[in-house]
Amino acid sequence: MQKFANPARFLKLAETLLPPIWGVTILAFAAGLYMSLVTAPPDYQQGETVRIMFVHVPAAWMALMVYTSMAAASIMAAIFRHPLADMAAKAAAPIGAMFCLLALITGSLWGKPMWGAWWVWDARLTSVFVLLLLYLGYMAVWQAIEDPHRAALIARIVAIAGFINVPIVKFSVDWWNSLHQGASVFRMGGPTIDARMLWPLLIMALAYTLLFVGLLLVAMRSEIAQRKLRQLRLAGIEGR
């Protein structure tokens, strides 16, 4: 990882990786949408409404995965002083926040016809809402504190401390009574979901993951550019 600590090397790598990532992302979304809307069968209880799963579940998985990667990057920044680690966490936050928001909205759109309510304050929904607040809090730290070193330090603390919520989200359906269904893919004993529904779900999850990687690379490139811009402006002020 230290090999890519050099921003110039990272930018070169991003430039090489982005075109194939965008290509595979488009293919994955096309295949995932076709399988989700055409080949996947309706559920015997939920009917066509089950198709919301193919956009809701990948968004929820990504919301958890992105926060986990932000916490991991923050730990790397704190221990190894990797210069790109804080940038990676900062760049990932708005992407993760959007996935989290989409998981909440699509969950609500699924909840209304199935549970008869747009929202209930049960453990899973509340813990995902807390995750969204953690994302917003993390982003607010970077916005509110002008000194980038101080902002990075406080943002790291928020990311690492907030990680405690990730296992709470994951196991909330096991620890407390919940309207939300339990795990049916990542569980001991393997998935309980039918293969005709599992494959579209996995392909959509792949598409969301690739989109995240592509957007993260662009957002990190922007962070490097912003840092350079700050240096150029400072040099300009000193040069006058």
Partner: peptide
């Protein structure tokens, strides 16, 4: 997919919101 099924509008709304949100994020970044 049965376009006349019950609650199909919720399915359409979920896909529309998801892709609008992702498109907004992409354009913004």
């Amino acid at each position: 997919m049965d376009w006349n099924a019950a609650h199909i509008d919720f399915v359409i709304a979920a896909y529309a919101v998801s892709f609008a949100g992702l498109a907004f994020l992409m354009v913004f970044i």
